[in-house]
Each structure stands twice: as structure tokens, then as C-alpha cells.
């Protein structure tokens, strides 16, 4: 299996403050990879750098063989990003929103197929023609995830995918992510929900104060930290890093 994403000594400074301090890890194709860490650890900054929204101060990011800075346009064709608490354009209907987004990836029949696929994935039924402003949080999230995967990205980056959702909606979305991974999409998720990360991810990396603290499969980490679950691993790792 080849690498879908490779981070090499990635750093990001905001003025004199270094938010990300030399992170290196890689994700294999088709893997679900979890990025965890306390608030302000540098997770979102890392995800934004991967998605070409922020420029790294130093280090490299390679997405499916493309350099993230030199080939940013190519990278944007093969990734999709779902920010935390993201919304859609409230004055558009779900269908109009999907058509708008699909317009950046395809035209003609391919465009029509992409929109149909996204509508199906969103499971919004007749509500696809309602305005986004009338959607519940779960419905809006399903629409956004459908948008994120409709262009068949090679790497999907999702920040807090089930944040604020009820149990049923969160469950459905996790199932949806598993299905995507089975179809070969590489997924990088960031979450505070340790149960979610443990049940979804093949491998996990934890960052704290901008540095990589640990990386491995959930089982490896539980064993390494003599913990019953990933939550305990998280707490031990954070406390250990703080000492």
C-alpha cells in the first residue's frame, strides 16, 4: 500500500508563537487515520496546512505524490476538506449547493452523475430541494459530507465530523465514513470523541503543544500505555507530556 499523505517535519509559526513543531507522520491509502489532541494542540492548523489553506513555515506535505505547496492546484483536485462546524450557503437549496460545488469538478454528464450521487449519499430525500437554512444540524452535516465525497477524493480530511450531532445522526455518519474507507478513500479525521476515534480509526496520532506525542493503532497504544481505552491513553499521554 502506498502513502496517501506524508508529513515531514512540518512546522507552522504565527509570529513568534510556534503552533506546530516539526510533525512527521504518514497515512496509507484507504486508511482511516485519527488526529487527536487537547484544544489548542495544533490539530486544526495541521489539517488546514494539509488542505492548502495555510502555508507551512517549514517542512513538507505530500498528498498522493504531489507536493502541497508546489502543486497546490493538483492537491486541491484530489482532496476534500470538511471543517469543524462548517455550514453551507443558507439561501441555496441542498440541490443548488451540491450543483455549485460539483461545478468545480465536472461538467456535462459527469456533472449530472456527480450531483445525483451526492443527493443519494446525503439521504435527504425530498428535502434536498428545501433551503439549507431549514435543515437540522444532522441533515446539514449529511449534505456537507456528501459534498465532501461526491468528487471521489483520494484524501478526505474531516474535522470533528459528529460534533453536536445526536446519537442516531452520529452513528449514521460514522457508518458512512467506514463505507467510504471500504471504497478506498483515505480519511483523516480529527476528533475529541475518543470512542469515535477508537472505533473508526485504523491508526491514531496525538499532538500536544504542537508536537507529535504518540502514533500507532488503538490496540498498540492501549498496550503501550497499559490503558483500557483510548481515553485513558489520551489522559496518560497528556499528563506525561505535561510533567
Amino acid at each position: 500500500m502506498t502513502d496517501a499523505l506524508v508529513l515531514n517535519d512540518l512546522r507552522k509559526s504565527y509570529g513568534e508563537r510556534e503552533a506546530v513543531k516539526g510533525i512527521s507522520f504518514s497515512i496509507k491509502e484507504g486508511e482511516i487515520f485519527g488526529l487527536i489532541g487537547p484544544n489548542g494542540a495544533g490539530k486544526t492548523t495541521t489539517l488546514r496546512m494539509i488542505c492548502t489553506l495555510l502555508t507551512p513555515t517549514s517542512g513538507t506535505i505530500t498528498v498522493c505524490g504531489h507536493d502541497n505547496i508546489a502543486e497546490a492546484a493538483e492537491v486541491r483536485k484530489i482532496i476534500s476538506y470538511l471543517p469543524e462546524d462548517a455550514g453551507a450557503y443558507k439561501d441555496l437549496t441542498g440541490r443548488q449547493y451540491l450543483k455549485f460545488m460539483a461545478g468545480f469538478f465536472a461538467s456535462g454528464q459527469e456533472f449530472e452523475d456527480m450531483v445525483s450521487k451526492a443527493i443519494e449519499l446525503s439521504k435527504l430525500g425530498e428535502r434536498i430541494d428545501s433551503k439549507v437554512s431549514t435543515y437540522s444540524k444532522g441533515m446539514a452535516r449529511r449534505l456537507l459530507i456528501a459534498r465532501a465525497v461526491m468528487a471521489s477524493p483520494k484524501l478526505a480530511v474531516m474535522d470533528e465530523i459528529t460534533s453536536g450531532l445526536d446519537v442516531m445522526s452520529a452513528y449514521e455518519i460514522r457508518e458512512f465514513v467506514r463505507e467510504l474507507a471500504r471504497e478506498g478513500v483515505t480519511i483523516l479525521i480529527s476528533s475529541h470523541n475518543m470512542y469515535e476515534v477508537e472505533s473508526l480509526c485504523d491508526r491514531v496520532a496525538m499532538i500536544n503543544h504542537g508536537s507529535l506525542v504518540l502514533t500507532g493503532t488503538p490496540a498498540e497504544l492501549r498496550e503501550e500505555y497499559c490503558a483500557n481505552n483510548l481515553e485513558e491513553v489520551f489522559i496518560k499521554a497528556v499528563r506525561g507530556a505535561g510533567q
Binding site: Y81, P83, K90, M101
Partner: peptide
Amino acid sequence: NKTLETLLT
């Protein structure tokens, strides 16, 4: 709404 972040990717 973070739609700008999405648009820029």
C-alpha cells in the same frame, strides 16, 4: 459558516 474555508480548498 466556514463556507469560505471549503470554497478555498
